[in-house]
């Protein structure tokens, strides 16, 4: 249990319930062993940041969690379901509760912002009327402060706005877990800060658990209450931002320059 702080921007405190449990995860692409015996537990309401060099397998890790990539071996337990053993129907059901924010936003170019947001709602067999869908879309967009863009095409939006729309889309299903894949990459520092604040707001508002893949320490500092260093395919170091910054280990120190 972490001590409660009254700094408003600090993440909410996590409970003891473990929502994601990863053990002994292995994944290799050809001869390139990306993940080697990776282990991680995420508690409810906790925000874990995974940092590592480019190509160290961070994205592979969260894609394994959501079932986009099949690991070679190891177990991934999400909300009590063993992801690697689920058929696609159960996997789809699980994916309603687990949202994924893609690095490149993955907004559908051929659809308007509204259709983009409606897409997961319609596709997940959620029984909602048209009115309910409209309400949910507006609510999600309002959460990210972009209610006015509802009928625009993604190509008309700026990079920061697209990221927010993508975030709104991940929120629309009211997920219990959000996986962020490099949420601030490619954004200017000010927009990156805005996005980070937004992530914290969301986490507090919906008490979501999250895994944040990043190499932006400012973002990580702001949003995460635990940092995991993914080095050589392993959970090399784990701890709070301040703890790790004091570490004497060479490899850990490299991140804090």
């Amino acid at each position: 249990m972490e001590t409660k702080t009254d700094i408003s921007k600090q993440p909410a405190v996590a409970s003891t319930e473990i929502v994601i449990s990863i053990a002994g995860l292995h994944k290799s692409f050809g001869s390139n062993k990306v993940l080697r015996d990776f282990c991680l537990d995420v508690k409810r309401g906790e925000s874990v940041a995974v940092i590592g060099k480019s190509g160290s397998g961070k994205s592979v890790l969260i894609k394994c969690i959501i079932g986009l990539i099949d690991p070679d071996s190891g177990s991934i337990n999400v909300l009590g379901n063993e992801v690697t053993k689920l058929d696609h129907i159960k996997l789809d059901r699980l994916r309603v509760k687990v949202a994924f924010l893609f690095q490149s936003n993955a907004l559908y170019d051929s659809m308007t912002v509204r259709e983009n947001l409606e897409f997961p709602l319609r596709r997940h067999w959620v029984n909602t009327t048209k009115e309910e869908v409209d309400v949910l879309v507006v609510e999600a967009l309002t959460n990210v402060g972009l209610a006015h863009t509802i009928d625009m095409m993604p190509s008309e939006l700026s990079g920061g706005m697209r990221k927010r729309v993508a975030l709104a889309r991940t929120l629309i299903m009211k997920p219990e877990i959000i996986l962020y894949d490099e949420p601030t990459t490619g954004l200017d520092p000010i927009t990156a800060r805005e996005i980070s604040n937004l992530m914290v707001d969301i986490q507090k508002k919906y008490n979501t658990s999250s895994i944040i893949i990043s190499h932006d320490l400012n973002c990580v500092k702001l949003t995460a209450n635990k940092i995991v260093m993914l080095i050589d395919g392993k959970n090399y170091a784990e701890g709070k931002y301040e703890e790790l910054s004091k570490s004497e280990d060479e490899k850990v120190k490299n991140f804090y320059i």
């Binding site: 894609k63 959501i66 986009l68 696609h88 789809d92 994916r95 309603v96 949202a99 994924f100 893609f102 690095q103 490149s104 936003n105 993955a106 907004l107 559908y108 170019d109 051929s110 897409f119 997961p120 596709r123 997940h124 067999w125």
Partner: peptide, 21 residues
């Protein structure tokens, strides 16, 4: 080109995550 760019910008992955084959 369309599917290629969807692949590159992870839209195909996003669809899969959104309960769509």
């Amino acid at each position: 080109a369309e599917l290629g760019s969807m692949k590159v910008t992870e839209q195909i992955d996003a669809m899969e995550v959104s309960g769509t084959n």
